[in-house]
């Protein structure tokens, strides 16, 4: 495991460097779109800690992403706090939010858990979209102040890449640790974990909180790179989009979520440049993938040489047997 981990870590760093080096290839005018994709990739990776590894299908991950972004925006735009204060505030309050929503959401199981997270994010969405004085309502907040060194597309891209890489490395460490092993064991066979003396609820709780905090950190990145927030970031559409990205890329492959984000976001951005039918093209693409790769594209790459180098599964063995929690929903 250790050896594997080192190779993976190196790969991640190389991938991060490659993403940073995109600035040499991508025209300057397209860079913000690329930066946005990197931010979403980090968010999808944090979501997959829940989906692929804990078997918790969260549909409301936008809650944390939006929360992180909104705390920074409110702090900066409404109260004129400096960015570092905003970030500290965002992350510390995200811990509280993650703990509270974990307590609520984890009461429900399987798909009901997903729907409960969806309901939570929708309640938060309506709250944000209707509190005009605090959040700017549906117009959102524009004009987040960043320090001078951060006020360029280049710097923002590097920050997004840096944070996303760090988040991925952290996730890799978590998954390679005994905790990661328990998490997957729990996903596949909760009774066994319990009978061996583990506390399934505690483990899931910790995973949920970590994923929530990491998503909030990506939300901070979104606030910094966009210098603006708007409420759809919190709504279920963001949560559902991230879910589809993870599913499309492959939830049982470590880097699957990134693959899903890159494919979907690049397609949409490109199509939008030329046509108003991005929904049609993205929709057909997703349908095609559903038929060709119901388990996501990542796993189908695993057989190939490319796939092995791309960073095969953290848990190849489990990929063959879909977790039990999902079977219950699909008799």
């Amino acid at each position: 495991m250790e050896h594997l981990s080192w190779r993976r870590a190196l790969l991640l760093v190389l991938l991060g460097l490659a993403a940073a080096a995109l600035v040499l290839v991508v025209p300057e005018s397209r860079l913000p779109a690329v930066t946005r994709t990197v931010m979403l990739a980090g968010a999808a990776m944090s979501l997959n800690l829940l989906i692929g590894n804990a078997g918790l299908v969260s549909m409301g991950h936008g809650l944390f992403l939006g929360f992180g972004a909104y705390v920074v925006a409110i702090g900066s735009v409404k109260h004129g706090l400096s960015l570092s204060w905003c970030i500290a505030l965002a992350i510390s309050s995200a811990v509280v939010l993650a703990v509270v929503s974990a307590i609520i959401a984890l009461r429900a199981r399987a798909l009901f858990f997903g729907l409960l997270t969806l309901a939570l994010s929708q309640v938060a969405f309506v709250f944000v979209a209707r509190n005009y004085a605090l959040t700017g309502g549906d117009d959102g907040l524009v004009g987040i102040n960043v320090p001078k060194w951060l006020d360029s597309d280049l710097a923002q891209h590097f920050v997004a890449v840096g944070v996303t890489t760090a988040v991925c490395l952290l996730l890799l460490m978590i998954l390679a640790s005994p905790f990661g092993a328990i998490l997957r064991a729990l996903r596949d066979n909760p009774e066994r974990v319990a009978s061996l003396g583990g506390h399934p609820k505690h483990i899931e709780f910790i995973a949920f909180v970590i994923a929530g905090i990491l998503a909030a950190i990506m939300g901070v990145v979104a606030a910094i790179t966009d210098q603006a927030v708007e409420p759809t970031l919190i709504s279920w559409t963001t949560g559902a989009t991230l879910l589809v990205m993870v599913a499309l890329g492959g939830r049982f492959t470590f880097l699957g979520p990134i693959l899903g984000v890159v494919i979907l976001e690049t397609t949409r951005t490109l199509v939008q440049t030329y046509s108003e039918h991005s929904d049609l093209v993205v929709g057909l693409l997703v349908m095609g993938c559903a038929l060709a790769f119901p388990e996501g594209i990542g796993p189908s790459l695993q057989g190939s040489r490319l796939g092995r180098w791309f960073g095969g599964p953290v848990h190849m063995a489990e990929a063959a047997t879909p977790p039990s929690t999902e079977r219950t929903a699909a008799p």
Binding site: R36, G140, D226, T232, T269, Q272, D279
Partner: peptide, 14 residues
């Protein structure tokens, strides 16, 4: 012209 999908961030990027 480009289609922003009624999304502020996309509008800014485009």
């Amino acid at each position: 012209h480009q289609d922003n999908g009624t999304n502020p961030q996309k509008s800014v990027d485009q």
